[in-house]
C-alpha cells in the first residue's frame, strides 16, 4: 500500500494524492511553492479514474477481439500535461514536473 508521506518525498514530487474509486480526492500532500491546489488535485483524480475506466473498457474489448493478453486489469494512468505530469496507479497519484519525471520510479513507489 502506497503512503502519501513516502510519495511526497519522491524526487521532484510536487504533490501526492489519494482518491476514491469514484474519483473524489481523499487525502493529499502538496509541496510548498508548487502552486498546486486541492481543487486541482480533485479534478485530476476524476480525470485519472475516468481514463482508467475507459482504458479498462478498451483492454477488455481488445483482449476479447485480438486474443492479445496483458492489458487487463489496468493498473495505472499517466497524464503528460504541458508543464506537469500526473502518474496514477490504483488509488494513489503523484504530480511531477515534465522535465524531471522518472515514470518507472513513480509507478514503483505508487505500487509499493
Amino acid at each position: 500500500m502506497a503512503d502519501l508521506e513516502k510519495l511526497i518525498k519522491l524526487e521532484h514530487a510536487q504533490a501526492a494524492f489519494k482518491f476514491s474509486p469514484s474519483g473524489e480526492l481523499l487525502e493529499h500532500r502538496i509541496t510548498a511553492g508548487s502552486g498546486l491546489t486541492a481543487t486541482m488535485l480533485d479534478l485530476l483524480s476524476h480525470v485519472c479514474v475516468a481514463n482508467m475506466s475507459i482504458a479498462s473498457m478498451q483492454a477488455r474489448g481488445w483482449e476479447n477481439m485480438t486474443g492479445m493478453q496483458g492489458f487487463y486489469p489496468i493498473e495505472g494512468f499517466t497524464l503528460i500535461g504541458f508543464d506537469w505530469t500526473a502518474v496514477a496507479n490504483g488509488e494513489y497519484g503523484v504530480v511531477l514536473p515534465n522535465g524531471q519525471v522518472d515514470y518507472e520510479q513513480a509507478y514503483a513507489a505508487l505500487a509499493s
Partner: peptide, 19 residues
C-alpha cells in the same frame, strides 16, 4: 482552475499488467 500546467496535454500512458 486557472492555468494548472496541464493544458494543452502532451500525452498519456495506460499501464496494464504486462502491456
Amino acid at each position: 482552475n486557472d492555468d494548472c500546467g496541464c493544458a494543452p496535454a502532451r500525452g498519456w500512458i495506460v499501464k496494464g499488467g504486462n502491456v
